[in-house]
Amino acid sequence: MHTTTPSGTLPAPDAGVILEPGIPVDVRLTLGVLQRGHADPTVQSRPEGVWLCFRRPGAGDPVTLLVRPAPSPLAPGRIPVLAWGPGAQAAVAAAPSLLGLDDDWSGFDALLASGASGLPPAVVRARRAHPGLRLPATGRVVDQLLMVVLEQKVTHDQARSGWRWLVRGYGERPPGPAPEGMLLAPTAAAVRQVPSWGWHAGWVQPAQSRAMLRVAERASALDRLGADPLGADDDPASVVGRLCTVPGIGPWTAAETVQRTHGAPDTVAVGDFHLAHHVGEALTGRRTDDAGMLRLLAPYAGHRQRVVRLIGLSGYRFSRFGPRLTPADHRRR
């Protein structure tokens, strides 16, 4: 058996499934939050679908996954999922969580339908325009922590550059027909072997490299933390709190991670350089701070991360002040 894509013919997968969720699922939009820039070696959106290369948490089995979008992101449709490698069966079994099929928007949609949400029209329209948006749950805590730590207190370009450097330098070739240039993220053991001078060459700050080493040292426990999805009665704040016990991991890093590993619909990243300003301007027309953002989002308890995602899709253009930061690059010094 072979399958044809715009890029050519793929070999038969080691495992596969056709999901029929019965709800709209925008595969590219849902999984796009996992991709760190267009050149991310671990996640790529291509014409044939979204490719992901990763290791199964705990077991470490590598897998290459291809998720083909449904015919329309606005209506229910069939979603083929193909996987190659030793982790293929497990990856296919976890595909519904990865695509956020358990992410229940019905309560939030009912609030919007009632007309009592109080959200600006542009935010309401964003939900109507993107009914297939879901919050993915990868379960891969270590990978996500490594990505997010590289985003601590640096510019967008520094963070993306650091992730590409780490994966290209210490990752491995994935199984199966992954597109050229795609790689598996480094294992915890590989991260621990990065020499001290290597972090400097990768434009990674000392505080970031120390935090990443602490994550690598606790990889087994962190993988267990991501093994089970959040149930209806589980508190994402408890997961955030446990992540914050790792030295160098604060509330912002933990929240950004849990949003992706557990699909936490109410977890908001406090401490983001821009987020509070964006939320304040979208909901009131005025910038605000973290405390003000939480007050504005309080009426949407249970759905606060959904509101944040929709604000990002609403088309708002936010005011920016001052010159754009150009970080100093000391790698050649």
Rank of each mutant, 00 (worst) to 15 (best):
T284K: 09
T284E: 14
T284F: 15
T284P: 05
G285Y: 12
G285I: 11
R286H: 12
R287I: 12
T288P: 06
D289G: 15
D289L: 05
D289S: 08
D290K: 00
A291P: 01
A291R: 09
A291I: 06
A291M: 02
G292K: 04
G292I: 14
M293T: 03
M293G: 04
M293F: 01
R295T: 15
R295W: 09
R295P: 03
L296K: 06
L297R: 00
A298R: 14
A298Q: 13
A298K: 12
P299A: 07
P299C: 03
P299G: 08
Y300R: 02
Y300W: 13
G302V: 05
G302R: 07
G302F: 02
H303C: 07
H303L: 05
H303N: 12
H303A: 10
H303V: 05
R304T: 06
R304E: 08
Q305S: 12
R306I: 05
R306A: 02
V307K: 00
V307A: 00
V307Q: 03
V307Y: 01
V307P: 00
V308E: 03
V308H: 00
R309M: 11
L310K: 02
L310R: 00
L310P: 01
G312W: 03
L313N: 09
L313M: 15
L313T: 12
S314M: 07
